[in-house]
Write a protein that binds this DNA or RNA. Structure first.
Lengths: 257, 257
DNA sequence: GAGTGGTCTAGACCACGTT
DNA sequence: ACGTGGTCTAGACCACTCA
């Protein structure tokens, strides 16, 4: 309970056009990037920072929220705020240089153990999106599967898959507990021969964030994939949301311009 | 200045384990998704919402920030908070189904007009990242170019390019004002024949957000690309940050599992 | 139990857009 | 001029972690 002035100060100008919390965030960013605050080390407590900088705790929290959202800081309830360790190198599913591979294969290729936790499994009418992507006839049903995909037990993605019920035949819950859906398809001679994948970036919403263990708003890499059999029939439509901080998709480009 | 109770109420439980601002956000989400709040329409003012729901304005703002970050709401200073219109369909650079194409070509392929605003252009020592990606000899210099890439005048991406100075020859600022760097390379018989592109998702930081016209924290699709000439010499290393809400990369996958 | 971050309040003033 | 969102304050209580 000392005067608790910080070992360092940040130059804050309340009159400036840039908000104080942005100034605090910038100051902290600089101290992190310059190495004055080392990776993994704890920041002063919020109340301490506020007192030391002469601003309210709310303002400090606004700054910390900004940096936490950018992945620069990690906040742990009851424990403290820490400088996020630098990203581990190349960490993602999809070694895919144009090669069709399953999530399980991709994770294994990185030397990690793939896993899956089934959130739901049902046989339902397709959504319009599913019906279109899978070119379903009216009345056809799909198996819809939502899983959290893990690497070494850590959540890496949430994946929603839809398969035409008429094409894949009877599927029971026990069939999809297995980590690899592709292995099951292979066993039924339904291996996809071709796929098209769309990639986008979105912010984690209230549903996905807890499933992936990231804060709401964290950047996610979202993919939509349609897979076809060799004869051209669609066999799977899947939408997956990957943790942005643990994913890195690779594509190889040839010729052209 | 009426009692200003809202035309609708949300069921809020202050004693619940889920925070009130999350409850407010969920309630608003439901009203938007169910169509009670139409796309483009304005929400009640923050003070009005707070009064109507019996919570403080700070709590309302926390809920609105959550939804704004997810792209569900758009806030306009001095004007109001609005339901974000639904995403326009297929909007991205890179029709690239494994084909090497420039930003300009990709944008034109979508029927839009590509543009570029040069933020900086310099001849410098390479960063370690650039030196490694371009396989530079010690002492070699690179041209480094930072541009905001636009489609129909709207910012779509921020792109940092690095080219080996020894390989491309003299470059003057006027040379790179042109929208397409690839066109310039083509003119010098330095067209890339092959490239590898990595894709990740990150949150917009304080530097990128204003350049792209998005809020801090918005999801961006970031790509690292190295391009090689037919003879195997690296010709360009580029890192680009695309607006997540306006980008959609496509990759085609063959054979394999 | 002491210390941390998480939530919430009631109020103030500023900056921006529109009229 | 007015209404809007943006920033900021000083304080309170809760919930989690760790010794």
């Amino acid at each position: 309970m000392l005067p608790s002035s910080l070992p360092w100060a940040l130059p804050l100008d309340p009159a400036s056009a840039t908000p104080v919390y942005v100034q605090v965030a910038q100051g902290l960013t600089q101290r992190i990037e310059s190495g004055h605050l080392r990776a993994g080390s704890a920041l002063p407590a919020e109340r301490e920072l506020a007192a030391g900088l002469g601003v309210s705790r709310v303002t400090v929290r606004q700054a910390l929220a900004l940096l936490s959202q950018q992945g620069l800081l990690t906040r742990r309830h009851g424990s403290g705020t820490f400088v996020t360790p630098p990203p581990r190198p190349g960490e993602l599913p999809s070694r895919s240089l144009g090669l069709l591979s399953s999530f399980s294969e991709d994770v294994r290729a990185r030397g990690q153990i793939p896993g899956a936790r089934v959130l739901s499994f049902e046989r339902v009418r397709p959504s319009p999106q599913e019906a279109m992507s899978l070119a379903l006839s009216p009345g056809e049903r799909v198996y819809r599967l939502r899983r959290v995909r893990t690497a070494d037990g850590e959540p890496l993605a949430v994946e929603d898959s839809a398969l035409p019920a008429a094409l894949v035949g009877e599927l029971r819950p026990a069939d999809v507990q297995d980590a690899s859906l592709y292995a099951l398809l292979w066993a039924r001679a339904l291996s996809p021969a071709r796929a098209i994948r769309h990639l986008r970036a979105v912010n984690a919403d209230l549903t996905l964030a807890p499933l992936l263990g990231v804060p709401v708003g964290a950047a996610l890499l979202t993919t939509d994939r349609v897979s076809w059999l060799a004869d051209g029939r669609p066999i799977e439509y899947a939408r997956a949301h990957y943790r942005g901080d643990r994913s890195d998709f690779v594509m190889e480009l040839q010729g052209g311009a």
